[in-house]
Each structure stands twice: as structure tokens, then as C-alpha cells.
Write a protein that binds this DNA or RNA. Structure first.
Length: 352
DNA sequence: GATACGTGGGG
DNA sequence: TCCCCAAGTAT
């Protein structure tokens, strides 16, 4: 039996007070939360682990201490700083959102869930998180952690994602009126450290007594998920070309879609079949004698595997007319190179 | 509702 | 090696 909701919240908050983690974006007890830092951290933490996000958070807040500073920055600076963190639409929306807050909201984040929801890159989860954590207002935060905790406490066996509305409704029934920010973070911390996807530490859980899934011995199997579709493999060839100054040709990817707005080593299209010599010649960024380098660059995106072969050449006369930017090899670190392209660069430098 | 969208770590 | 997963959002 689930206890009175205030009793459940009291137990969770007590657990949180004893196990609170010191995270770079978390206000210390007694400190006032900064909505800018809360927002920035929540965007970075979307589908991203704490260890991955933490160094980026420090870099961003050191360089852009306020939302106005971020709004004043060129988008490309933000993309360079975000490079490697993934889901680059977040970086584009982050910058767009900063400008909206600076220009349409006087540099202050709106303080209601409904208004926050209007901001670019801010969805249901993030709006609730900012409302609760930054403004101390009641809001039900539902992320993957909360879904898992709730699915187990109430033994919801309906598979995801169909169970989402049910889980949201059940989560809302438990949300207390007191300490909204701490409660939201406590729920997520519980899911992240105790009620984990595999091998949940039920012995350490403040809610173990009344967890229906634990009682039924099915905690680790919840929430149920349908089998995922197999990932296809796409193949392509990347063109590593140096000009007479020893600079490499890079391009800017289209603003939308995969790796939108990021820098890339030029490549053929990525398709099921690897391109043959004719396709490599047809899609070359400039005329050159291409030499296939041994080995493959492998990378896995959310929805497909990628295998890239790298071909290398030295650009002949007329290299200035190639579309793109020539970047000295020792300046590649200044570019907005996503991880897959860092792999290509390393492979080429190692092999050439 | 389904799909596109990154990356690195863990088992 | 391979699959799963992580503080989701936009379309």
C-alpha cells in the first residue's frame, strides 16, 4: 500500500538530505538557484550523463556567466563549445532560447511552466524542472528516472512508451507542495543512484517497503519496453585533402538535420552500399588523385551505424576554388567537429 | 504515435 | 563485440 503522499515525500526528502550529491549546477543548501544555470544544466543533461555534461557546464558558465552573455555570442562559438556533447539541435536551440530570453523577456527566464514551455528546446520535462528547481514552484518532473521509479512503485506493467501518460498521472499524485525543487531532484537522484535500470539497490531505497514491483519480484524488469528496431549500417567515403600550405578542407553541414551546423571532413553520401571509385570521383570536393587509406572509421549514431573509409590527396592548382574552409591541422581544435569527425581526423593523421 | 537526433560508458 | 542506456525535444 502506498502511504499517505506527504509521508512518501517526507521519506524521500529525508533520504535526499542524507545523500545529496554535490553537482556543479546544484545550489548549495540555503543558496538561491540561478535560473540560467538551472536551464543550462537541464538542456545539457537531456539524454546525457552527469559525467559527460559536467565539464561542458563549467566551460559554458566560465565563458558565458549570464544568459545575456550567451545571447550575445555568435552561434558558431556555441557550436564549437558544444562539440562532442551530441544532439546538436540542443546547442542551436540553446542559443535561440538565450536570445529569446534576452530580447523578449528582458534577460530573465519566465517563471511559469506554461511560459517556459514556449521557449526553444524546452519541453515538458525541462519546463517542469526549471519551475521546481529554479523558482521553487510545484511542478511534476517526469524524466526517464521518474518513469522508472513510478513504474516500479506502482508496478505498472504496460510497456513504454504507451505507459507514459499513466506514469505522469501517478507521478503527479505523489508530488508534494513542500520543497518542490528538492523533491524533483530527489526523484531523479533516486532513479539515478538507487532505482537503477539494472540491479536496483532496493535495500537502500526509502520507498522499498511499499514498492509493489519489489514485492512482486519484478522491479528490475520495469518499465517494460518493446523491442527496438535493428540499426541499419550506412557507408561512405571521407575526403582528407591538404592544400600546399598543409591545411585541411572542411565544410559546414546543413543547418538542420544530423550534425546540423557542425563542421565536417567532406564525404560522399552515407548509404547502404559503400561508394565505388566512380562514386568517389563523382562526389569529390575538388579534382585530385585520391588514395584509399587502410582501415575504417566506425561510429554509431542513435539510429544507424556508420562505416567511413578515408581517401587522401594533396590538392593541385585551383584548390582555392573548393567549397569549404581550409584549416591548418594544428587549428582543428577550434572547429565545431562532432565526435565522428574527430575520429576521421585522427584516423587520417595516424595513417597518412 | 513514430521517427530523427549523438555520444561514451557499462555489463 | 554488441547492446543498453542517460536529467528529452521537435516534427
Amino acid at each position: 500500500m502506498i502511504p499517505e503522499k506527504t509521508e512518501a515525500a517526507r521519506r524521500l526528502l529525508s533520504w535526499y538530505d542524507r545523500h545529496r550529491r554535490d553537482l556543479p549546477w546544484r545550489a548549495k543548501p540555503g543558496e538561491t538557484a540561478d535560473p540560467y544555470r538551472v536551464w543550462l544544466s537541464e538542456i545539457m543533461l537531456q539524454q546525457t550523463t552527469v559525467p559527460a555534461a559536467a565539464p561542458y557546464f563549467r566551460t559554458f558558465t566560465d565563458r558565458w556567466p549570464t544568459v545575456r552573455a550567451l545571447a550575445d555570442a555568435p552561434l558558431d562559438d556555441v557550436l564549437v563549445a558544444w562539440a562532442g556533447l551530441g544532439y546538436y539541435a540542443r546547442a542551436r536551440n540553446l542559443h535561440k532560447c538565450a536570445r529569446v530570453v534576452a530580447e523578449a523577456h528582458g534577460g530573465r527566464f519566465p517563471a511559469t511552466e506554461a511560459d517556459l514551455l514556449e521557449l526553444p528546446g524546452v519541453g515538458a520535462y525541462t519546463a517542469a524542472a526549471i519551475t521546481a528547481i529554479a523558482f521553487g514552484r510545484k511542478a511534476t518532473v517526469v524524466d526517464g528516472n521518474v518513469e522508472r521509479v513510478i513504474a516500479r512503485i506502482f508496478a505498472v506493467e504496460e510497456p513504454m512508451p504507451a505507459a507514459k501518460p499513466t506514469l505522469r498521472r501517478l507521478a503527479a499524485t505523489l508530488t508534494p507542495d513542500e520543497r518542490p525543487g528538492d523533491y524533483a531532484q530527489a526523484m531523479m537522484d533516486l532513479g539515478a543512484t538507487v532505482c537503477t535500470p539494472r540491479k536496483p539497490k532496493c535495500m537502500l531505497c526509502p520507498w522499498s517497503e511499499f514498492c509493489r514491483a519489489r514485492a512482486a519480484g519484478i522491479a528490475e524488469t520495469l518499465p517494460r519496453k518493446l523491442a527496438k528496431a535493428e540499426k541499419p549500417t550506412r557507408r561512405g567515403v571521407a575526403y582528407w585533402v591538404l592544400n600546399p600550405d598543409g591545411a585541411v578542407l572542411l565544410r559546414r553541414r546543413a543547418e538542420e538535420g544530423l550534425l546540423g551546423g557542425m563542421a565536417e571532413v567532406p564525404s560522399t553520401r552515407w548509404e547502404q552500399e559503400a561508394p565505388d571509385d566512380a562514386a568517389v570521383a563523382a562526389q569529390q570536393p575538388l579534382p585530385a588523385r585520391w588514395r584509399r587509406l587502410p582501415g575504417l572509421v566506425r561510429h554509431t549514431f542513435t539510429h544507424f551505424h556508420l562505416e567511413l573509409e578515408v581517401v587522401a590527396a594533396v590538392a593541385g592548382t585551383g584548390w582555392q576554388s573548393a567549397a569549404g574552409t581550409w584549416v591548418p591541422v594544428d587549428r582543428l581544435g577550434d572547429q565545431a567537429l562532432p565526435s565522428v569527425m574527430v575520429k576521421v581526423v585522427r584516423h587520417a593523421l595516424k595513417t597518412v
